[in-house]
């Protein structure tokens, strides 16, 4: 058990949770940057596999991702510190929010600040989309596959769980062509 790694996991995931506007996917875009780009704990493909697994496992995706990454890097304790790290900021924010609501709502428009942050989170999310597309869609077949999946999701709104499962089976059939 390496205390330095545990602390660095906790600090990373606390930071991720603290800035993760837009819910789980906001968190994922932050996790992608922190885990793949900054710390290089895993590569983009491993990160996508982790997301597939998170999507197929019950529970909030950001929690699943934190637990899995922590576990991979430093076992059960790593999983524990990463998970606590990503959950704790929610408490900080809620308590801060309730305090601010009493103090500031008369003087300034707090809802406009939150609205702005909810729009700005599109930058990390779009970046995660771009970076992950580049590392997973490598040929024309994968591109067509992705386009079909996107259209199905856009117009039929099937549960995401099933989209991942069906795509997985399509992956087994297409195998080496992807």
């Amino acid at each position: 058990m390496n205390l330095k790694i545990l602390f660095s996991l906790f600090a990373s995931f606390f930071k991720i949770g603290f800035f993760a506007f837009g819910g789980g996917y906001g968190a994922l875009s932050m996790i992608q940057d922190e885990v793949v780009n900054v710390h290089k704990w895993m590569n983009a493909q491993q990160f996508l596999d982790l997301l597939s697994i998170s999507q197929m496992t019950p529970g909030p995706i950001a929690i699943n991702a934190a637990t899995y990454i922590g576990c991979r890097i430093s076992g059960v304790w790593g999983a524990f510190f990463a998970t606590v790290g990503v959950v704790l900021p929610s408490f900080v924010w809620v308590l801060l929010f309730l305090k601010l609501l009493n103090l500031a709502s008369k003087k300034m428009d707090t809802s406009r600040i939150f609205d702005t942050l909810k729009i700005a989170i599109l930058v990390p999310i779009s970046l995660a989309g771009v970076n992950l597309s580049l590392s997973s869609v490598k040929n024309i077949i994968a591109l067509i596959f992705g386009a079909v999946a996107f259209l199905i999701l856009r117009f039929k709104r099937i549960p995401l769980f099933w989209l991942v499962i069906i795509s997985g089976f399509a992956g087994i059939i297409l195998g080496k062509y992807l």
Partner: peptide, 12 residues
């Protein structure tokens, strides 16, 4: 997982 990765990108 190869197939599932594409689904995840699409979901994002």
């Amino acid at each position: 997982l190869k197939g599932a990765r594409i689904a995840i990108v699409v979901i994002i």
